[in-house]
Write a protein that binds this DNA or RNA. Structure first.
Lengths: 147, 147
DNA sequence: GTGAATGCAAACTCTTTGCATGACT
DNA sequence: AGTCATGCAAAGAGTTTGCATTCAC
């Protein structure tokens, strides 16, 4: 029997940090556990807000930054000036985002075809590829309807 | 005979603005002309620096913002907290970027295969698609060699 | 016990805004 | 002439840093 994917990721992340001698105090643990329960990205502010009172803003940023450097979370920029963060499940699937330029709504999507094209492309580049982000911009169906 | 693509784009951009009743003062014109001569993206700060003395920072941001809203330039976020801007040549080709996480070097690339995958994907989404950005993260060949 | 993590507040960077002035059409 | 663009300086948002304290190992 398996633990849920969320729990697995939290353990993975905390374990990865521990194996490098990083300590998991309350702040780090709270950030990891919050992210573990999200299926899509959260901005640093959102993380800080949901943890307000328990964790200081600086620790939130420090934790997110560390996790991103370790490849345990992915930093995502949507162009609104706030970085977003989302857990990376190794070997798990992997989605991208469509953002509505009208209402700002964010929708995740997966596309195997696109991933294959990215993979083929990676082989062609004179670069070691660690990851990729795709952002599609447009208008969501409800905004398109209303005008 | 054709004007160079750069000149064409500058005229297109200025023309598009003029047709909406926007005036092209020195600042706007300077930003458009600077961008016209670039083949890859420039950050707002870089634009402001190269225009320093002639154009105020606020006007640079205002011009870039207007051009981006009109779809004449594309705003690109690389995750370093500074927005970059690059001209959009309608019908012209279209590139994406690979960024080295070690040295920050930015390399443009084009990939038809990827564009096709994006195009097919667009048809599958419940969204009007206006554009897309792809960012590949990794290590450039010289950083990979040295470490 | 020791070094790392945390919280707070101050500092910083990038970007936006208010307002008076100046310029384009 | 009238409207829009510009510059400057101040404000704002998001993020980072310094430092004393507290906590995990």
């Amino acid at each position: 029997m398996h633990a849920s994917p969320e729990t697995e990721w939290a353990e993975l992340a905390l374990g990865a940090l521990a194996s490098e001698g990083r300590k998991a105090g309350g702040a780090r643990r709270a950030v990891v556990e919050l992210l573990a329960g999200q299926s899509c990205c959260l901005s640093a502010q959102e993380v800080a807000d949901r943890l307000r009172g328990r964790v200081g803003v600086a620790s939130v940023y420090r934790a997110l930054d560390l996790l991103a450097r370790e490849g345990l979370v992915q930093r995502i920029e949507l162009g609104d000036g706030a970085a977003r963060f989302e857990r990376v499940v190794p070997g798990g699937d992997h989605h991208h985002h469509v953002v509505c330029e009208r209402c700002g709504r964010l929708t995740p999507f997966e596309d195997e075809d696109l991933e294959r094209a990215m993979h083929r492309l990676a082989g062609r580049l004179a670069h070691t590829v660690r990851g990729h982000d795709v952002l599609i911009r447009g208008e969501c169906s409800s905004c398109a309807r209303s005008g």
